[in-house]
């Protein structure tokens, strides 16, 4: 893991000895440490139940919502302790995209994009609003498709479009990090491809962490990969190196499809 430690200078996030337990003592993630590189895509892979989503949700403290989940360890965002920030502030700096597209059904497409501002009670001037909506939708390559129906509810959009809308919603706040929890698992291959291309473009401006159960997706778009197994971070390194020459036997078995 030496090569990763060297890169701490460029790290946007530092995960230090993080463990997450459901219902006291029942650990889903044990003692994970890793530095996440700025402006790169980092994939977290592993078989289902390995704790990859749990780790992801520890980063923006989603676990705080559930009283029976305990997070231990430390996470630093740009060197500052995430636990000491208010969750509201932390989550504005770390956007999140969920497994299933979940635009707010009671809001129009435009309102969905600026939902973060609305929910946080930040009032925007009309011009600012339009600018943010247009830029965010353009960033996710949805602008052309929806620019004439901005004031309609987003329910008529396809699954892939809805998911891009949800990414736009996360981008509108200009977060530093975007967390994606299996964002393409409910989408068709064409929509998946579009999202993947989008993520590669987005890493110019954002640091991206992507949880995926699909190792070929990790291979296609990620720069760094983590392999998790039974709550443990087994291996973490450059994606290419890990796929060509895995260091751990379990990683090798996973990548060669011995278990899934």
């Amino acid at each position: 893991m030496d090569e990763i430690n060297v890169e701490i200078k460029d790290a946007v996030l530092e995960i230090k000895n993080v463990s997450v337990a459901y219902n006291k003592g029942n650990y889903a993630v044990t003692n994970v440490s890793a530095a996440i590189k700025r402006n790169r895509i980092t994939a977290i892979m592993g078989p289902s139940g390995c704790g990859k989503s749990t780790l992801l949700r520890a980063i923006n403290r989603m676990h705080d919502l559930y009283p029976n989940i305990v997070t231990e360890g430390q996470i630093l965002l740009n060197g500052a302790d995430a636990a000491k920030m208010s969750t509201m502030m932390l989550r504005r700096k770390i956007g999140m995209v969920f497994q299933r597209p979940n635009p707010f059904p009671n809001m129009s497409i435009a309102d969905n994009v600026i939902a973060g501002y609305k929910l946080n009670g930040i009032s925007l001037k009309k011009s600012e609003k339009e600018e943010i909506i247009e830029k965010s939708l353009q960033d996710v390559a949805l602008w052309k498709e929806v620019k004439d129906s901005l004031n309609q509810k987003g329910t008529f959009l396809s699954g892939g479009q809805q998911q891009r809308l949800c990414i736009a919603r996360a981008l509108a706040f200009q977060p530093e990090v975007i967390l994606l929890d299996e964002p393409t698992s409910s989408l068709d291959p064409i929509s998946t491809k579009k999202i993947e291309e989008l993520l590669i473009e987005l890493k110019e401006q954002y640091s991206i962490i992507l949880v995926t159960h699909n190792m070929s997706q990790a291979a296609r778009i990620s720069d760094y990969s983590m392999f998790m197994y039974l709550g443990e971070l087994v291996e973490y390194g450059k994606t290419k190196e890990m796929f060509i020459n895995p260091k751990d036997k379990r990683t090798d078995e996973y990548l060669t499809g011995k278990f899934s």
Binding site: M85, M89, N120, E128, E131, I132, F173, Q174
Partner: peptide
């Protein structure tokens, strides 16, 4: 535009006990 958003971020960052929180 970008500057105005950053401004909002910075101000509320330092006030954990801001109006919304209260």
């Amino acid at each position: 535009m970008v500057s105005s958003i950053t401004e909002i971020k910075e101000t509320s960052n330092h006030q954990k006990w801001d109006a919304r929180f209260i």
